Amino acid sequence: MVADIAIHRDDENNPHFHVMLTVRPFNKDGSWGNKATRKYILDNKGNHILDKNGKKKFKKVSSTDWNDREKFKSWRKLWEKKTNLYLSSNGFNEKITHLTNAARGLETLPTIHEG
């Protein structure tokens, strides 16, 4: 996986960061792997089922779970735990949460940061 991280400390009242991650894995030789593969849908005799345009029907199968909403939530939860551990061990009383504003019952909308 590749992560592109931008840390913004220009406003002391709003330190934050942005992370962009790939959903495409690497192959063992270092080349890019496939985001997904096709699993063709077959009938009970093993023949391809065709769609209305005569093309073979298939299901998209992701090669990783990195684009899965539950995986993202678990990563956010891990980030919360690790960050709060370091905040506490460095004398800060503030805590962060992995929860969205909506999940926290806040009606405040996230702001747009223009750089």
Rank of each mutant, 00 (worst) to 15 (best):
K81Q: 13
G30V: 13
L99G: 00
K81F: 11
W79N: 03
A36W: 14
N84A: 06
G46D: 10
T97P: 06
K82R: 09
K59I: 09
D43G: 06
N84H: 13
G91L: 00
R9E: 01
I112F: 12
L42Q: 11
I112T: 04
K82V: 08
M1C: 07
T108W: 00
D29I: 13
R104P: 02
W66L: 05
L85I: 09
D65V: 05
K60M: 09
V23I: 14
I112P: 04
I7T: 04
W32S: 13
K45P: 05
K81P: 05
K45A: 10
M20K: 12
P25C: 13
G30D: 13
E70I: 10
L21W: 13
G30L: 15
D51S: 12
D43V: 07
S88M: 06
S74D: 09
K39D: 11
N53E: 14
K52F: 04
K81R: 10
L21T: 11
L42T: 10
L109N: 05
N14S: 08
W75I: 09
H8E: 06
R9I: 08
P15A: 08
G33K: 10
E12M: 01
I49T: 14
D43R: 08
W75N: 05
T22G: 12
K81I: 13
D43P: 11
G105K: 01
W79R: 02
N93V: 03
K35L: 11
D29Q: 15
H48M: 10
W75G: 07
K95Y: 13
S89F: 05
E114G: 07
R69S: 08
I7K: 03
A103L: 05
T111Y: 03
V61M: 10
H98V: 00
N47M: 10
K81C: 02
K71H: 11
K57T: 15
N53M: 13
D11E: 00
H18P: 05
K28P: 14
R24K: 13
E80V: 12
L99I: 03
D68V: 05
L106Q: 00
K56P: 08
L99T: 01
K82N: 06
D29V: 15
T100Q: 00
T64G: 07
H98T: 00
G54M: 12
L87A: 05
N44A: 15
N84L: 02
T64W: 06
T111S: 03
K60H: 09
T100E: 00
N44F: 02
S63Y: 10
G33T: 15
D65F: 04
V61Y: 08
N13F: 04
T97F: 14
A3R: 07
I5L: 02
S88W: 05
T83N: 06
T37F: 12
H16Q: 08
P25N: 15
T22R: 15
D4C: 01
D10I: 01
N13C: 03
N14M: 07
K95L: 00
E94D: 03
K52Q: 15
T37V: 14
N101G: 00
G33E: 13
T108A: 04
K73C: 09
N47T: 09
D11T: 00
W66I: 06
D10C: 05
T97N: 07
R9V: 08
N67W: 08
G91E: 01
A3S: 06
G54W: 01
D51Q: 14
P25Q: 10
F17R: 04
V2N: 08
K59E: 14
K28R: 12
F26Q: 14
R104Y: 02
E70P: 07
